[in-house]
């Protein structure tokens, strides 16, 4: 038996909206630790890793480890029928092929349930080694969204360079070049507005803006985003999910031919 109840149901809606552009079908792995998902995009360039810890749920029952295979476009259609303030319960029987979504309005005057057919998805699980990153940037997620959106008007790729001067986002395209530099800025009374740059070594990497823009669909999950970079590793773009876990996007760099 699998049954979990999430009071802040909007979190689930936001997570699915953030990943459904990159991933069509995915397994949610359920264990006593919580719910997790790992999936690659169809081009095998980006990897998504989601964790929602069990202690973030009001009720969490998972009698044995199960993988629940689902089509994210269908999950999105179903979650769109839930109100933003609704409490969401997910239920599945052992060996069943249905997942039940139950949506309760905050004052309990509307309760809906929808059963969704599950899928058998063969997915590759990748080992992500713990890494010490050469540069870690924490910045307002809205600012990162704006940078990615603005640069896509000029070019298709972004070079992210971290030096002791700050972090520079650069692009070049047919109409010209663009650079945006963000410096460290610690706003003590508003920590969410801070930009904090931790750098061990200067690092500069090139990425496809199309993927970066897709990652920023997670902006509403968190007021800040953490970007971790090392010269020989995929970038990690992480949105924390309040008191529950994280949504991480890994993106392989583009390299000189």
């Amino acid at each position: 038996m699998f049954e979990v109840r999430l009071v802040q149901g909007s979190l689930l809606k936001k997570v699915v909206e953030a990943i459904r552009e990159l991933v069509t079908d995915a397994n949610i792995d359920c264990s006593s630790t919580g719910l997790s998902l790992q999936a690659m995009d169809s081009s095998h360039v980006a990897l998504i890793a989601l964790l929602l810890r069990s202690d973030g749920f009001e009720h969490f029952r998972c009698d044995r480890n199960v993988s629940i295979g689902m089509n994210l476009a269908n999950v999105s259609k179903i979650l769109r029928t839930a109100g933003n303030d609704d409490i969401i319960t997910l239920k599945a029987d052992d060996d069943g092929d249905l997942l039940t979504f139950m949506f309760e309005s905050p004052n309990q005057d509307r309760i809906s349930d929808i059963e969704m057919k599950l899928m058998d998805i063969k997915s590759e699980h990748l080992g992500i080694p713990d890494a010490e990153y050469e540069a870690v940037i924490k910045m307002p997620s809205q600012e990162f969204l704006r940078i990615c959106k603005d640069l896509s008007n000029i070019g298709d790729t972004v070079v992210i360079s971290v030096t002791k001067e700050g972090v520079k986002f650069s692009t070049r395209g047919d109409i010209g070049n663009a650079n945006i530099v963000c410096r460290q800025n610690t706003t003590l009374d508003k920590p969410d507005d801070s930009t904090i740059i931790q750098m061990k070594e200067p690092v500069s990497l090139t990425f496809a803006l199309r993927y970066m823009n897709s990652f920023t669909k997670a902006t509403s999950l968190s007021s800040s985003v953490t970007i971790s970079m090392s010269s020989d590793l995929p970038i990690v773009v992480e949105y924390k999910i309040a008191d529950m876990g994280y949504l991480r996007f890994y993106l392989a760099p583009k390299i000189e031919d």
């Binding site: 980006a46 990897l47 990748l126 080694p129 496809a208 590793l233 392989a252 390299i255």
Partner: peptide, 14 residues
């Protein structure tokens, strides 16, 4: 001039 690396170049299959 740039080629897109795959994520599988960096992470191993479990």
């Amino acid at each position: 001039p740039c080629i897109q690396k795959k994520i599988l170049n960096y992470f191993s299959r479990d």
